[in-house]
Simulated scan of single mutants.
Amino acid sequence: MYKASVRVSGALYPHDPAAAAGDAVITSPRIACRHLNVYYGAKHAIRNLTLDIGRNEVLALIGPSGCGKTTFLRCLNRMNDSIEGCRVTGEIHIDGRNVCHGGIDVVPLRAMVGMVFQKPNPFPKSIYDNIAFGPRLHGLASSRAELDRIVESSLRRAGLWDEVKDGLDQMGTSLSGGQQQRLCIARAISVNPEVILMDEPCSALDPFATAAIEQLIDELRELYTIVIVTHSLSQAARVAQRVAYFHLGCLIEVGATDAIFQNPRHKLTEDYITGRFG
């Protein structure tokens, strides 16, 4: 079994990734990762990760830059497939189906597991067409009226409908940064996903827009499983029910948010949360 030894501030802390995995097991998970390893050429980016993610919860991934958070996130909808030299071993089961299997069609997978990126990336289309794109692609609407309902419902769930309902034909790129990010969230949920992945969704936003996105995350949790990468510990504390701490490609600790922030079990977690490094 792989064992990592991590040196921080002159001290050596041994860590066995399987030990952290024991913290992660939950009843009837929506996502179950087992012995996940990711390699970029010779670089071992994720090391023997085992982690369960529950239904209708927000899991925040925290840790220093380059620790593997985004790499893990991109495994959940196979976005690492597009990176030359990337190799993934292990299993990721979503609702019991191993999405790492070579026969999986990634197009419906990426509809089921939606992604919201660090920088808002609306299509250079109207607000309406930004939302309608996915349902049209996947054949989710049989008529214009049905498509109209999907667009309105998605914008309502993203908390954007009242702000844009009288200008659905205007370009999505003309919206403010916070509105653009909510538009991207509406676009992600328009195809009825099971899981929403968010990679630093508020890093480019002002405090008011960030507060709106955080409130939206809390509301969306009633319908979706959400996994969010964030460098903001205060944001993780506000939005997540559980937190997973990564370091040098290893899952160090995962648990209830209050427990992680108030009483971490691992020295590496404590040092990161208290600002000794990271």
Rank of each mutant, 00 (worst) to 15 (best):
S5C: 05
V6I: 14
R7H: 09
G10I: 14
A11P: 01
D16Y: 08
A18F: 07
A21T: 00
I31T: 00
V38G: 10
Y39P: 10
Y40W: 12
Y40K: 13
L49W: 02
T50D: 12
L59W: 10
L59C: 03
A60T: 11
T70V: 13
R74M: 08
M79I: 00
N80I: 00
E84W: 01
N98P: 02
R110L: 03
P135R: 12
L137Q: 03
H138N: 05
S142H: 02
V151D: 02
G159T: 10
W161T: 09
L175Q: 04
S176G: 05
G177C: 03
G178Y: 02
G178V: 01
Q179P: 01
Q179N: 06
C184R: 04
A188K: 10
S190Q: 06
S190E: 02
P193Q: 08
I196G: 04
P201M: 11
L205K: 08
D206G: 11
D206F: 08
A209T: 12
A211R: 04
V227Q: 09
V227A: 08
V229I: 15
T230F: 11
S232N: 15
Q235N: 11
R238S: 08
Q241F: 03
F246W: 13
H247T: 06
L248R: 13
I252P: 13
H266W: 12
K267I: 15
T274N: 00
